[in-house]
Design a protein around this nucleic acid. Structure first.
Lengths: 341, 341
DNA sequence: GTGAAAGCGCTAACAA
DNA sequence: TTGTTAGCGCTTTCAC
């Protein structure tokens, strides 16, 4: 009875017309008599027919699907990013295939393969694994979010350097003379760090940086943050912390509590991201809000331009075409009680 | 040059064999000479060939894809659920198509259609829209997570009633004589509420319930929570709150602060879910942890049994077969400073 | 061991 | 206004 999904042929038979005709009413193409239209529509209705998108896609048309690669949608930033990307895509009639790389290069590699195998129309990558040359092989529209993959791949992100400077400035203006940076990976590619450094030096202070890797498993995380901060404080005073994500900032809050440091009197804290979830969880935490919706929309719109051929992927920059864009959106300071004034 | 993805035919030509042969080495079926195998493998390598899964699926095989419908992966519970479902599925060689219904019935309906159109092999639904009779039309393996869809659809969930009782008991044992329930929708189908009621009555206390709809937009949320709690407190004293999710519990914490109620001296608070994100953000919040990984694994395993034919979906319960299971996993009390002892 | 040919469900010329 | 036919890329009998 409910053996298999009905096909075009089933509909055609029931309606007493040819396949083409059914296909035509489905795609609303060509001239059809009202009567035929209705017949077919009825048949579709009674059969509960749904076109097989695979077959359609096989024919060379688009799959209307875009792959999104992120570390994990369980992280508030990426969860919200995924939702916004999905919304932006939905408006254009595209769907999303979400891939959680879990910070593992092998999984990202696998997913890349899978996406190509599934013939998605394009890929948005927000994962952060290094050294994946597989991306060079990708012959399809590609956009990254906050990730420098190659000069030929467009990159959309928050204006990290200025945002980092903004956060640091907020600490300094609040009276901190020993502001510390807590981040996941220090180095020249960390633009939030660059902003921090610039601002600290401008104020004639000394940069101090402490790192706890992004993908540390939760059980060990808090211990690592605590140790790192303890060490830093043992070396010299700390009266402010800029954590490059809000979850890390939450750990700093907890650390302060265990040391009976009162916030912001003894210690000012500012985070980064400003996701809805974290705003709800810790409304008093000052932070820099990334404009997630804008970022998602921009990434989607660039990708769709490529997909729809307005901007043929300049993979090899033939004729020295314009280099791929880096689009930046400013972060926004959200004040909070965790910050002295 | 990088015109289109290479096809089986391209590989066959380069290797100087037939389509069949290539297909055989791909699927490792039948007898092949080592030499041929190697030739083909090389051709695949140099061409960077990836089988088109659409074409394969079209042939009647599985798509190896499962749809997951949730309100939004940006909510910590569903974000973590999605990740766990994806992990469980990955082990079995399946992938996941995530659909965020955003609490809207129309979007859920659309997504259902889309999933069927994409010929996913099965669906896991964790969304919460009422009155979607579309589900009756679905002729494919289906499992729900914490959602009573129909007696014939298996449902996996946390043992909500006991967990609700557990939370309430924690408040009462901590000395609360006026424990309030903050939930999103009150009614007989709310099992956490049922647990709360049972326990409150057992202690000879009066149940008091306050609701703020789940999908209230963030800007208005906090105001609604505040008003609801203010009203409740104006009517009679409140010395404990059981919030049926941790984000709501966070709002109660904030409400307590604005009223200078000290937690837990004046007010005990316990939440629900115990996601990693919320544990990191508010480590001192007592809560009931849902065993998300177990729930995800169970749902996946039941679904895969259906897909792989071990348990033919008993949509009409022919021969009065065993009714669809409801699988429950116990919640776990996580104590915290928000709770008096 | 390997190949030829039919067909999965659909679209798009090309006819009628 | 509608039907016929040839694929899309792959798997799978059935032959050789």
């Amino acid at each position: 009875m409910s053996s298999r999904e009905p096909t075009l042929a089933d509909v055609a038979e029931l309606a007493g017309v040819s396949l083409t005709t059914v296909s035509r009413v489905l795609n609303n193409r060509g001239y059809l008599s009202e009567k035929t239209k209705k017949n077919v529509a009825d048949a579709i209705q009674t059969l509960g027919y749904r076109p097989n998108s695979l077959a359609r896609a096989l024919h060379g048309k688009r799959t209307q699907t875009v792959g999104l690669i992120v570390p994990a949608v369980s992280l508030p930033f990426f969860g919200e990013l995924a939702v916004e990307v999905e919304n932006a895509l939905a408006e254009a009639g595209y769907r999303i295939l979400i891939c959680n790389s879990m910070g593992r290069a092998d999984r990202e590699r696998e997913y890349l393969s899978l996406l190509v195998g599934n013939r998605v129309d394009g890929i948005i990558s927000g994962a952060h694994n290094e050294g994946l040359d597989e991306y060079d092989t990708i012959r399809m529209p590609l956009v990254t979010i906050d990730r420098e993959l190659s000069p030929s791949v467009p990159n959309v992100r928050c204006a990290n350097e200025e945002a980092g400077a903004m956060a640091t400035r907020a600490l300094i203006e609040g009276g901190c003379s020993h502001p510390l940076l807590l981040t996941s990976r220090s180095g020249p590619r960390n633009l939030r760090e660059a902003g921090y450094r610039a601002e600290v030096e401008r104020a004639g202070l000394t940069p101090r940086i402490v790192t706890v890797p992004f993908d540390t498993p939760t059980p060990q995380r808090f211990a690592m943050v605590r140790n790192a901060l303890d060490e830093a404080r043992a070396a010299s005073p700390v009266d402010g912390v800029f954590a490059t994500d809000d979850l890390a900032a939450a750990e700093v809050l907890e650390w302060a509590r265990t040391h009976s440091l009162s916030v912001p009197t003894d210690l000012s804290i500012i985070g980064f991201d400003g996701t809805e979830t974290m705003r709800r969880a810790l409304p008093h935490l000052a932070t820099i809000r990334q404009p997630i919706a804008e970022i998602a929309q921009a990434a989607v719109s660039i990708l769709l331009d490529q997909i729809e051929g307005k901007a043929p992927r300049s993979s090899s920059d033939e004729a020295g075409a314009a280099p791929a864009q880096t689009v930046e959106f400013p972060g926004m300071l959200i004040p909070g009680r965790s910050l002295a004034l």
